Amino acid sequence: MIKVHLVPADGGEALTLDAKPGQSLMQAAVAANAKGIEAECGGLMTCATCHVYVREPFASALPPPVEDELGMLEFTASPRQPNSRLSCQIALGPQLDGLTVDLPPTQT
């Protein structure tokens, strides 16, 4: 299992998830009923409601976003930052064990 930490926007205690390799971060969050990831499109990359801010050292270790993801990041409800990603595009594997992301204040 891969440990993933979701930090709420209000700075509260992080929610730690045990995710399966091969799942997307969005799938793991939805399966755990995590608040803060809406995932309205179910991972089809058409809504930007699974926006997260990826902390280092993981942000720079992820593959760069594809053009479609970059386009969807233009429509996030919370301000886009250099470490903004769509969680549906983050494939979890052993190299991401310990991944920590900050959730935006709003997804809609």
Rank of each mutant, 00 (worst) to 15 (best):
E38Y: 09
D68E: 07
P21K: 06
Q23H: 12
G42Q: 09
V101G: 09
I90K: 03
E13R: 02
T108H: 12
V52E: 06
D18V: 02
Y53N: 05
L6I: 04
F58Q: 00
G42H: 11
H5M: 09
G12M: 01
P82Y: 12
V101Y: 01
Q107C: 09
V30Y: 02
L73W: 08
L103G: 15
F75V: 00
S84H: 08
K35Q: 13
L25K: 02
V54A: 08
C50T: 07
L62Q: 02
G11E: 06
L73I: 15
E13K: 05
A61P: 11
A28W: 03
R55E: 15
I90Q: 02
T76V: 08
S60C: 13
N83I: 04
N83A: 05
Q23S: 14
G36M: 08
S60Q: 13
R55D: 14
D10G: 13
G12T: 01
Q81D: 03
L70D: 06
L15R: 08
A77S: 14
I90P: 04
M1N: 13
K35V: 15
F58K: 00
G98Q: 02
K3I: 04
Q89K: 06
V30G: 05
L17N: 10
E56N: 08
V30H: 00
V4R: 07
T76L: 05
Q95L: 05
M1W: 08
L17Q: 03
T76R: 03
R80Q: 14
L92F: 11
G71W: 13
V54Y: 01
S84F: 11
L62A: 13
S60W: 14
L6G: 10
T108Q: 12
A34W: 00
P82F: 15
Q23G: 09
G93F: 11
T76K: 02
H51C: 12
E74P: 06
L73H: 14
E40S: 15
L86C: 09
T46A: 15
A9N: 01
G93I: 08
T106H: 11
V101M: 01
P82L: 13
G93K: 03
V30M: 12
S24K: 00
K3P: 00
Q81R: 14
K3C: 13
A59R: 12
L99R: 06
P104H: 10
L15D: 09
I2G: 11
L92S: 07
A31W: 01
S78C: 03
C88P: 00
T76I: 07
D18H: 10
C50S: 03
A14N: 08
V7C: 10
L44C: 05
P8F: 08
E67H: 14
A91W: 04
A28C: 07
M72H: 05
K20E: 12
Q89T: 08
R85A: 10
A9I: 00
V4L: 07
S84L: 10
G71V: 10
T49N: 13
I37Q: 11
E13M: 01
P63R: 09
G43K: 06
V101I: 07
G11M: 04
L6T: 03
D102W: 15
T46C: 14
A14T: 05
E56L: 12
A28Q: 05
A39M: 10
G43I: 07
T49E: 11
E74A: 10
P63Y: 02
P104E: 01
P64Y: 00
A48T: 01
L62V: 13
